[in-house]
Design a binder for these strands. Structure first.
Lengths: 222, 222
DNA sequence: ATCAACAAAATTGTCAACAATATTGGACAT
DNA sequence: ATGTCCAATATTGTTGACAATTTTGTTGAT
C-alpha cells in the first residue's frame, strides 16, 4: 500500500534518487556505478538498480557499456552547447504558447515570482534568485500546457546542472537575467506570443553567452 | 571479440526490435506487452525484456504501470500536435546550423537527394518521395553536426510514425513538400542561416497543417 | 440475464545463485 | 624500475524459482 500515487515499481524511485545523486554532484562524472553497491545503498535489489540505470542511460545521464557497467556520463563542453541550442528553441516554443494561454490567475502568479526575483536580487540572495528562476520557467511551462516540450526541457536541464551553476555566478549575469525575465513575463501577461518568444530567445541568448564564457574560463584554468 | 561495435548487451537489440515492431504497427496501441511472451519471441530472457521495456517507457513509446505491465502507448491527437511543435523548433535549429556548416560535398549530396525527390514525385512514386524525405532530413542533421538535437528529433519522430503516414497522403501535400524542400536545400547550400531556418519553419508549418487536417478527417470518420 | 463473491490462472515483482567477463594485483623476466 | 603474463578478485550477465498482484473464469443468488 502506497501513500502517494503508485506510478511504477521501485525502479522509478531508484531512478529518481540516482538522478538526485548525480545532479547534486554526489556522483562525479565518469564515476563507476556498481550495481551491487547501489542496491545496498538504496535498499533494493540489483534487478531494480539495473533497470534504473538503463532508464538513466536512455535519458543521457549515465553511459553503459557491455560487461563494463555504468558510469556517470560526462557531458562535454560542445555537448553542453548543443543542449543549450535545443533548450533555446524549446523554451521559445513554451513562451509563445504560454502567451497564447495565459489567464488572469497565471499573470498574477508570474508577476509574483518575478517580484520575488527582484527582491532577492536586491538583497544579493543569489541562491534565491536561482531558485525563483527555475520556478518561473516551470510556471511558464505549466501555463503553456505542452507536456511534451516540458518533458524534453526537463531532461535537458538535468544534464547541465553543473555548467549552469557556474554560468549564473558570472559577474553581471544575475542582473541581466532578472531584467530578461521581467520582459518575458510582461510579454506573456500581455498575451503577445511573438514578443514572448522573442523575449525568451533573448534571455536564452544571454544564458548561452554566459555558458560560453564560463566554459572558456574553465578551459583557461585547466 | 565482436564483429561490429559492441554498444551494450542484449537489451539494446531487444529495444531496437521492439521499436521496429511498434513503428511498423505489428503491435497496436494499447496492446499489452507480456514480458514472458516477448522473451520467447525475441529469444532472450525476461530480465532483458524488462530492461528494454523500461527504456522504451523512458522514450515514450510504451507505458508501464506497477504490477500491470507495459502497453504500447497511444499518442493522443493533442500530444501529436505537441510533438509537432517541438519538432518544428528543433528542425529549425538543425537547418540553421546546417547552413552554417555545409561544405561543397554536403551541397552536392543535398541537391542529389532533392533531385531524386522531384523525379520520384514526377513519377508519382510517393513511397520513394517519403523515403527521400526522411533521408534528406537525416542528411541535414548530419551536416549540422548537432548530435543532441538529432537524437531528440529521432525519438520524437518515432512516436508519430502512424500520424505522419496519414498526413503525407493528403492531396497536394506531396507537391508542396517537394517545393518546400527545394527551398530549404537552396538556403542551406547558400550558407544563409536565417533563410534556411525560415524555410524549414515554413516546411514544418506545412507538415503541421497537414497533420491537423489528417487528424480532423480521422475524427470525422470515427 | 446480471451481478457479486470467490477460486484459478496469468502476469509481474523480487530475490538468489551461478556463469561470463573485466579488473586488479603480484610474480617474474628483462 | 618497467613491462608482461597469470592467478585472484570484482563486476556484470543470465537464469530460474518463488512471492505478490492482477486478471480471468466460474459459481451461485437475485
Amino acid at each position: 500500500m502506497e501513500t502517494h500515487v503508485a506510478k511504477q515499481g521501485d525502479q522509478g524511485d531508484v531512478a529518481v534518487r540516482l538522478r538526485e545523486f548525480i545532479a547534486t554532484g554526489r556522483f562525479v562524472p565518469n564515476e563507476r556505478l556498481v550495481e551491487a553497491d547501489l542496491a545496498t545503498a538504496l535498499q533494493t535489489n540489483r534487478a531494480n538498480v539495473r533497470i534504473a540505470l538503463a532508464m538513466l542511460d536512455q535519458e543521457g545521464l549515465v553511459i553503459r557499456e557491455r560487461n563494463r557497467g555504468a558510469r556517470v556520463r560526462l557531458v562535454s563542453d560542445v555537448e553542453a552547447m548543443e543542449i543549450a541550442d535545443a533548450r533555446r528553441a524549446l523554451e521559445g516554443v513554451v513562451a509563445r504558447q504560454a502567451a497564447a494561454c495565459a489567464g488572469k490567475a497565471d499573470a498574477i502568479s508570474l508577476r509574483r515570482i518575478v517580484t520575488g526575483m527582484r527582491k532577492a536580487y536586491a538583497a544579493s540572495d543569489f541562491i534565491q534568485v536561482s531558485r525563483l528562476n527555475g520556478q518561473l520557467h516551470a510556471e511558464i511551462q505549466r501555463i503553456a500546457g505542452n507536456k511534451t516540450v516540458a518533458r524534453l526541457l526537463e531532461t535537458l536541464k538535468s544534464q547541465i546542472v553543473r555548467q549552469q551553476y557556474r554560468a549564473i555566478l558570472l559577474p553581471g549575469r544575475a542582473k541581466a537575467s532578472v531584467r530578461e525575465h521581467v520582459a518575458i513575463v510582461a510579454a506573456i501577461c500581455a498575451g503577445d506570443e511573438t514578443a514572448a518568444e522573442a523575449a525568451m530567445l533573448r534571455h536564452m541568448d544571454g544564458v548561452i553567452a554566459a555558458l560560453k564564457q564560463a566554459i572558456a574560463l574553465n578551459a583557461g584554468m585547466v
